[in-house]
């Protein structure tokens, strides 16, 4: 019986069948290359919609490969039922034993395409890595960090980890700028300068509100923790905006003789006195 199935299996793969399979795979790949080119062209033409456009590709890719494989099996090979069952069993066993992690990543990739936790173009924090999602492949996700590194994370790991998504499909995102300043500065003046400085930054998306809060904190000595929350026009300008606002606040305080630049001159410097980080 087993020999019979083996013979049936071998007979299915004539040269014509093999050529058709290879042809189908090449055509599918070419279609995907074409779609990716079209999406990239559209993104260059309308950068404002780059996140919406980019998120379509992972789904299209899965659907196309699924369609191609289905066509190869049902349309080209046309195996008898017994061969299908035997092949599926063997394939399952082989995949299960030989490539547990790869299969996990693949399944995770499909799950992420069906129910996305983030999209291409989103700014996400995965583990200790923070950056823009530049590609969502079937088995891995690639992040582009602000240090210009490309981080590749297996999809199975992403499903296990908590993910913080800063913009969730929108181009603008909230950025928090934290500054630690001496308590000698009047709070009302500090807040006023902080709000004004944020509005002065050309990276700020003014359609959404800007908030400034001041908290007194004690760490060896008292100091103020100024937090400015503003939306950046485009996630790619996140660091530029945060730096710009921080510099404008410090310059304005110096111009008003409220701050001489010697941060915590008489105290122990708290950890990370000028902290700029995205709001999560």
């Amino acid at each position: 019986m087993d020999k019979n199935i083996y013979q049936q299996f071998v007979e299915l793969f004539s040269y014509t069948t093999l050529a058709s399979i290879v042809g189908t795979l090449i055509i599918t790949w070419l279609i995907l290359v074409g779609i990716r080119w079209a999406i990239n062209t559209l993104v260059n033409y309308k950068p404002k919609y780059r996140i919406q456009l980019a998120q379509t590709f992972p789904v299209i890719r899965i659907l196309l490969w699924f369609a191609a494989i289905s066509y190869i099996v049902i349309g080209i090979i046309q195996p008898p039922q017994s061969v299908i069952y035997a092949s599926l069993g063997s394939l399952g066993l082989a995949i299960g034993l030989a490539s547990q992690d790869a299969a996990k990543n693949l399944v995770a990739g499909i799950m992420m395409a069906v129910s996305p936790r983030f999209k291409v173009g989103d700014m996400v924090k995965v583990g200790e890595h923070y950056g823009e999602v530049i590609s969502l492949d079937l088995s891995t996700t690639k992040l582009h960090t602000f240090d210009d590194d490309i981080i590749t994370v297996p999809n199975a790991d992403i499903l296990k980890m908590p993910i913080s998504n800063s913009n969730n499909g929108e181009l603008n995102e909230m950025v928090a700028v934290d500054l630690h300043l001496p308590v000698s500065i009047p709070i009302a003046k500090l807040k006023s300068i902080a709000l004004d400085a944020a509005k002065c930054s050309y990276y700020v998306y003014l359609k959404k509100p800007i908030v400034a809060t001041v908290f007194p904190i004690f760490q060896d000595d008292f100091y103020y923790h100024l937090k400015i929350k503003a939306y950046v026009l485009d996630v790619r300008f996140e660091k530029s905006m945060a730096t710009d606002i921080a510099e404008r606040v410090i310059e304005a305080l110096q111009e008003n003789d409220l701050f001489d630049g010697s941060l915590f001159a008489n105290t122990q410097t708290p950890k990370d006195p000028l902290e700029i980080r995205p709001s999560i």
Binding site: L195, A197, K199, C200
Partner: peptide
Amino acid sequence: IALDNLHFLVQRTLGAQ
């Protein structure tokens, strides 16, 4: 009172508010 050229109110400097 007609006020034209309102663009002279726009400025991204401290004190604009």
